Computed example of a mutant assay.
Amino acid sequence: MKDLNPSLQNHLASGVATLAFCWILRRGDGVALGFTDHDMPIELNGVTCEPASGFNGTEIRQSASFASDDQEVTGVLSSDRITETDLISGRYDGARIETWRVNWTDATQTVLLREGYLGEIKRDRQSFQVEIRSLSVALEQERGRVYQYTCDATLGDARCGVDLSAASHGFTGTIAAMSSPTLVSVDVSGMPNMSFARGSLHIKSGDAEGMSFDVLGHSAEGNADNLELWLPIHSGAKVGDMVRVTVGCDKTFRTCRECFANQNNFRGFPHMPGNDFIISYPEQRSSSNGESLGLL
């Protein structure tokens, strides 16, 4: 049950309701966008909800179970609000969205109907359709750790402890060439002693400033480093833009120890007995002097 403020409750009881839906979209980079199905702008929590967005929402469903109750919102691709380029480039991935019911004659009379995350986005040439997943979707995700050889931490996070801002782990430079949206050549300062594969490309200037991309593969060619990205760049990156590239990690204990000297923070189980150990059996000619069997 929603708690309504007395003024909104009195307004609803009057029998003449002047209500509108408002959506506030908060991206991970701090940008907040507001939309409404009313025909005039509505100021809500410091965000101007624009009427000319073409936003239209389906019914709101909410059940008593832990299942995720999803809603869909459709809208028109607008050049100055939500662009196809931003959608493709992932600027809205994981964004939070709030659905409000507002008295458009007095925007202080509001009720928050639901909060959620942006889910699957479908688009065509002129419009888009986005799924709003409820907060309970987090309960559907697997939690805990996996008993495995490799490390389950992300390079540079709190569990890993590696400082990616160190000069030996990150390199600044510029984009030297772009063969395709997923193939980028960068000219960075210094010579990395590790591969950028499984690392990250961070764009620091230009239209794509603030965007980060995971690196799939890395090869050196002359003074340039060729990077193959997991996802394409569609946000206007061009030759000359400033970038920072960080090294990657293959999650093995050897790399953690020899490349990062971070073996004390390794989050895997490198000495876990494998299949070879399980199916092994004693042999008469085998040495049994207590040394390692070489299976780990």
Rank of each mutant, 00 (worst) to 15 (best):
G274F: 10
C256I: 09
D152H: 04
Q284W: 06
L112Y: 01
S89A: 06
G236E: 01
G170H: 03
P51Q: 03
L229V: 04
C151R: 05
T58L: 14
N265S: 11
G116A: 02
G222A: 10
V146L: 14
L44C: 09
N56W: 07
K238L: 12
L293E: 15
V243D: 04
R133V: 03
A208V: 00
R198M: 01
S235F: 08
I279R: 13
N10P: 06
G294E: 12
I175T: 03
S134V: 05
T246Q: 07
L295H: 12
D124I: 15
A138Q: 15
F171E: 04
V102G: 10
T85Q: 04
R285A: 09
V245G: 00
L77V: 13
F196T: 01
G94L: 04
S286G: 14
P273I: 11
A20S: 08
K238G: 11
D37P: 07
P273S: 14
D163G: 08
N262H: 06
A176Q: 01
D29W: 04
G94N: 08
G28L: 15
L164W: 10
T18R: 06
T58I: 06
E115S: 02
E283N: 03
G15C: 08
S7K: 03
D70F: 07
G206T: 09
W23C: 02
M178Q: 07
I82T: 03
I233M: 07
F253W: 14
D163N: 15
G294K: 12
C49N: 14
L293Y: 08
S180P: 02
G54C: 11
A95G: 07
P6W: 01
G75V: 03
L155W: 01
S136A: 07
C49L: 14
A107D: 09
G173H: 03
S168V: 12
F35V: 05
C160S: 05
L183M: 08
G206V: 08
T246I: 10
V130K: 03
D106M: 13
